[in-house]
């Protein structure tokens, strides 16, 4: 049985402390700029804060993983190199990368740093993963959320590195690192700027009949009845019309959360080394609740006991849940 580390999100220094206190084996975080894929206002760390966070986590036996998982546009690579330099200086335990140029730089300039391959690199086959292991010494791959457990088990047999999978939180639909939907509608790029459906471009428009439309950069993304709770306008969770679906439908996916709580045991058996909880943009109390619940569940499974999963299922706050691609190929 694999170790099943619990990897938890930290959007702020206080969220990081909360995650560590709640039992995270490792936390992942990023700087306040385009070098990471959650470059949202009010989130992330200054170099000084990262240094303090590393001290806090290490003092309590937890690791800190630095997300440098965006793609620098030509002419701006210095920002990513500086971020790697700071990460090395303050002693982060690993850097999570996607761009080959960034990976190559870190492998050569900071050979002591452990590299993890971000989900943003979209490595979904043993060959792709082995490419990054062979050339950049990647020690762990974060798998795209598009594989079944059977496929993960097979991949594990064919690669020389550890596997990390998302188990809870946002359910990414598109192959990460290959999505320019936000860039197309807003001019801010997920790959280059670390932005996805940015709040600065969001508006909610109330209609006379009480209905509400959520918009991104002026495009209607979803429409809600007077009694419905309006969701955030993420492009790939929007409602659109198509020739065969004139009534409007969720063309890509419904607003839904990933929750693999019922599958933790199978994932461990498949050889998954680390479980990742999504949500660097979420509140401290959310982090505390989710991390504590998964800590308990993972510990029970590791002790050979049945985990009480009801609490985990309730965590999605009434939102619809899915096991996405992990359970069945029919998801595709």
């Amino acid at each position: 049985m694999s170790v099943a580390e619990l990897i938890c999100p930290a959007g702020t220094p206080s969220a990081l402390r909360t995650a560590v206190d709640a039992g995270a084996d490792a936390v992942y975080c990023g700087f306040q700029n385009a070098t990471n894929a959650r470059n949202f206002p009010g989130l992330n760390f200054t170099p000084q804060e990262l240094e303090e966070a590393v001290a806090y986590a290490h003092g309590r036996g937890a690791k800190v993983l630095l997300a440098l998982n965006t793609y620098p546009p030509a002419g701006r690579t210095a920002l990513w190199r500086e971020a790697a330099e700071i990460g090395a200086r303050v002693g982060v335990d690993a850097v999570i990368v996607a761009d080959m140029g960034v990976a190559d730089h870190i492998a050569r300039a900071h050979p002591g740093i452990r590299l993890h391959l971000s989900v943003q690199a979209a490595a979904s086959s043993p060959e792709a993963i082995r490419y990054y292991c062979a050339h950049f010494g990647v020690k762990r791959v974060v798998l795209p959320r598009i594989l079944t457990i059977a496929e993960i088990r097979q991949i594990r047999k064919e690669i020389p590195c550890e596997i990390e999978t998302f188990i809870f939180g946002n359910h990414g639909l598109m192959v990460e690192g290959r999505c320019s939907l936000t860039s197309y509608l807003t001019g801010q790029s997920t790959n280059m700027d670390g932005v996805c459906s940015p709040a600065s471009h969001v508006e909610y428009v109330r209609h006379e009949d009480g209905a509400m439309t959520s918009r991104l950069a002026g495009f209607a993304i979803d429409r809600f009845g007077p009694d419905e709770k309006a969701g955030y306008p993420t492009i790939c969770k929007g409602r659109y019309n198509a020739p065969h679906r004139p009534e409007g439908y969720y063309a890509f996916e419904e607003p839904i959360s990933l929750n693999l709580a019922p599958m933790l045991h199978q994932l461990i058996e498949a050889g998954v080394h680390a479980f990742k909880i999504e949500g660097r943009q979420r509140s401290k109390s959310y982090v505390r609740t989710v991390v504590s619940a998964f800590r308990k569940a993972v510990d029970e499974i590791r002790a050979g006991r049945r985990a009480d999963l009801d609490g985990l299922v309730a965590l999605t706050e009434g939102r619809k849940q899915t096991q996405g691609a992990f359970a069945t190929k029919k998801w595709r």
């Binding site: 795209p144 598009i146 860039s183 190929k329 998801w331």
Partner: peptide
């Protein structure tokens, strides 16, 4: 090209799956 996915959205629009 703006995105690729493991899911087929053509199939989905017609109430089918990729397989």
């Amino acid at each position: 090209s703006l995105a690729v996915s493991a899911r087929c959205y053509h199939a989905r629009a017609h109430g089918r799956t990729k397989d």
